[in-house]
């Protein structure tokens, strides 16, 4: 079916990842949950994870061109 699904997946997670990363960077106090053993800025960390995932999907879509691999 004409649309390679990696495009919407990649774009969406890039957008959401960017939102989380920016929010985490600007509001580090509100992004840190004081849980035993962690004082990480979880929004920032997870935002970056989502960005990387989104970028990988986009990369796959670009390189796969019109013929997505059939796993």
């Amino acid at each position: 079916m004409g649309l390679d699904i990696r495009w919407p997946i990649g774009l969406m997670f890039t957008v959401i990842g960017a939102l989380l990363t920016v929010y985490g960077a600007l509001k580090s106090a509100a992004s840190t949950i004081p849980v035993a053993g962690t004082d990480h800025n979880i929004n920032l960390i997870w935002g970056i994870v989502l960005l990387v995932f989104g970028a990988l999907m986009l990369l796959g879509a670009v390189r796969g061109g019109k013929n997505p691999p059939s796993a």
């Binding site: 959401i16 939102l19 509100a30 992004s31 929004n43």
Partner: peptide
């Protein structure tokens, strides 16, 4: 319990 705003939305 574990999600601050942002992660909560996700």
């Amino acid at each position: 319990k574990y999600c601050p705003p942002g992660l909560l939305g996700l």
